[in-house]
Amino acid sequence: MTLCARVLILCSVCIAGLDAAEIYGILPASTAVTPWALSGQPQTAHGEDLYLLINGGAELVIEYGFQQAMLAEYGHPDGGRVNIEIYEMDDSESAYGLYSLKKGRLSTPWPVGQEGALDDYYLNVWKGSFVITLTGLDQRNETRAGLKLLAAAVSAKIPSSGVLPGLLEKLVPLFVEKPSIALIKGPLGASNRSSFPVYPFLAPATGVILKFPDGEMMIVECSAAKSEDEIHKNLSAAVARRKDLSWQTNRDSSMILQDRSGKLFSMIFKPPIFYFSSGETALKKLDIIRRALEGSN
């Protein structure tokens, strides 16, 4: 059976809790995305085999809780090309986390899946436990239109949906001007988005990083196993290794640091939540955020 035939048959299969072969079924049939058509053979990976498919950067996807992935390319008769990456993650929180990291800082919301983010030449989609990334490989107008067409077709093949992670549900309503928000589930995601290496001392934990024009805020829900003393001790040791920082306050629950330029960094641990803030906007928002999170705990 040819690959295209296999794709067409599997396209009609209901997708829920996909096994290895069924991820092919998410690819849209050419009849649904005319005149776009699958070009070449899709590549797939399961679990740690992702290292072989994504030679560099796979660990970030695995950190979020990875199940399987498929890479495919679609072509337009006039020469346009679009790469499609489909990632099935452990659950919708894992998928949202990866999506939040992959979408661009200046992306525009796009109505596809549960949430879509359109950038210059690519489109990221979150739906249930899936993340879909579509990349236009040229500047043609039909390629940009193709991104949207293919995204909608792939998304329609995913019947499941998920809920926004709890931390985000509480945080998002607090902002009129939405900051760039990333959900983190491990040290790579944290180091990718945060300029300050505090997360590894809190791991394993889920958190969010909010980026503002003048700084950032990291909010992490620590496991019960992390004691206040342990976190304080580890952070103090880490700061001691940084020659560019000096203490303003160093108490168990509240630590304030200053760098050489005078910029302030605040760290507060109110178990189980740890807050790291830098820059004026984050520091100003800290009280409101703490009330929203701690008030509901």
Partner: peptide
């Protein structure tokens, strides 16, 4: 510097990550 991982065995490249890389502060 990092491009040289391209001539190393992909399975060996995996050992560049500590077994407990997700929780070890020194993993990166």
């Amino acid at each position: 510097l990092k491009n040289l991982m391209g001539i190393n065995w992909p399975m060996n490249n995996r050992t560049f990550h500590k077994p407990n890389w997700a929780t070890d502060p020194d993993a990166i």
